[in-house]
Design a binder for these strands. Structure first.
Lengths: 248, 248
DNA sequence: ACGCGCAGCGTACAGCGTACGCTATGATAA
DNA sequence: TTATCATAGCGTACGCTGTACGCTGCGCGT
């Protein structure tokens, strides 16, 4: 039973490169999704193909289809998997602090996974982790006194605002990475592109575009978020007081 | 010179189907972009290929490249072209009414062109029409008394909120159209999918998901928009009063 | 009348998602 | 132990994509 006993016409016995001796843990949805997240993080939203993904998993492209109906489903699973990373605030915070924190955490996760963030903007992926997040947001709003209609609107508002902002923040940097520029080169390029456009039709933008594109830090995001929450609070107390006016 | 004089071995003389007698107006960026918008409106974000687009223009695919560097540029031009449709409010409105109106108009345009709306969420297209819109928003905010930093943040907030919401509204309907379901079938499908998920872990969502997905009307959007504007107003007056405190 | 520039196009290629059917492996029944 | 069978994995192939390249033929300047 020693290796030498194998008939030579089958070829010299060499250990098959390593994968069949430690028989490589089997494929699974989770392993595939994890690899997809990693690939998106490393190489951005473009250029994730079933073939390259399979290669990273030391597998054939078509093998993936045993675990995933099609690429679309894989992307949806990937988006939902990301949502699991969003930490939910502790229970004792009031609704406003909770929404603030969940929005910031959400944004942080999306910025940590810029490639997948674009997908979250584009695809409707309602999986368990997404539901967990929305469940938290809506129930917190309900228990704070928002009506069902208002809670739905307010929750959607917070989430949509967050996603919209992250897309706005991610797109420029995605563009930059794609073009191989540095931030400064890109800013210069932008300036020349602005200068090229009918010259003085946009005096304000000429000064402010860098500010609008260069969301490196979270200050503008928080500015809008806090404004939004403040407005929601006003509506909440207004609704609460008009709900039981005879008591007044 | 009558048609009958043409030598028969070239085939019987029939008018070349019509395109070479009225020699079809020449290709141009504008014509291509217009066709792209039309195609996106008619067939959704998926399935816009250079070949199909060329076919609609009675042209070969590669001819398009005489007027457009690549597909990406075409998509950017398309998005920017859409922005021209956003009507700007009359001059005499105050900043809040202006922002409200520009946001509603913006949303209306994106909903009118659902296919292209997804692109606006994904691509960074800074063309003249986009700049015109941002120029208006920012200058209105500046003249209302926002500082440059705050105007940039507030403007970005309004725009990003609008885009984020529209994406949230468009995605479900896009999903529906793609799957060929009706709205009711989709709702039912969603309910079964929710029911399939670990059953009672999401009691709130079970009731509220239809509300969250079924944004047929603009009420939730306006709810959040008005809240946002109210919060921005609070910040504006606070900044204005703290800017000249010695006068108090 | 001639020549040239350039819009338009035909062909070709690499890469994509994925349907289909074979193979080999590991669990189960006898 | 041997025989059976389900199924994970894979090789091949098809139709589609974006687009590089080089030809063609029309329209304008001379």
């Amino acid at each position: 039973m020693s290796p030498a006993e194998h008939p030579p016409f089958l070829g010299a016995w060499t250990d098959p490169p390593e994968e069949s001796r430690s028989p490589r843990e089997p494929l699974s949805r989770n392993r595939i999704v994890a690899a997809a997240v990693a690939h998106l993080d490393a190489h951005g939203a473009e250029g994730l193909s079933m073939r390259t993904l399979a290669e990273e998993l030391h597998t054939a492209a078509t093998s993936l289809y045993r675990h995933v109906h099609n690429k679309g489903e894989l992307l949806d699973l990937t988006v939902d998997a990301l949502m699991a990373e969003v930490a939910l605030p502790p229970d004792d915070l009031d609704w406003r602090a909770s929404m603030r924190m969940v929005s910031l955490n959400f944004r942080a996760v999306l910025l940590r996974h810029r490639g997948a963030a674009v997908l979250r903007g584009t695809r409707l992926a309602i999986g368990p982790n997404t539901l967990r997040l929305m469940e938290y947001v809506c129930s917190k709003l309900l228990e704070a006194g928002f009506s069902e209609t208002d809670a739905a609107a307010a929750g959607a508002t917070v989430i949509n605002y967050t996603v919209g902002c992250v897309l706005g923040e991610v797109m420029p940097t995605a563009e930059i990475e794609a073009s191989g520029y540095t931030w400064d080169q890109f800013a210069a390029e932008m300036n020349t592109r602005i200068a090229a456009i009918p010259l003085d039709r946009f005096p304000v933008m000429r000064r402010m575009l860098p500010m609008l594109l260069g969301h490196h830090h979270s200050q503008p995001f928080e500015y809008g978020l806090d404004a939004l929450l403040e407005g929601l609070e006003v509506r909440r107390v207004a609704a609460a007081s008009s709900e039981s006016p005879p008591a007044g």
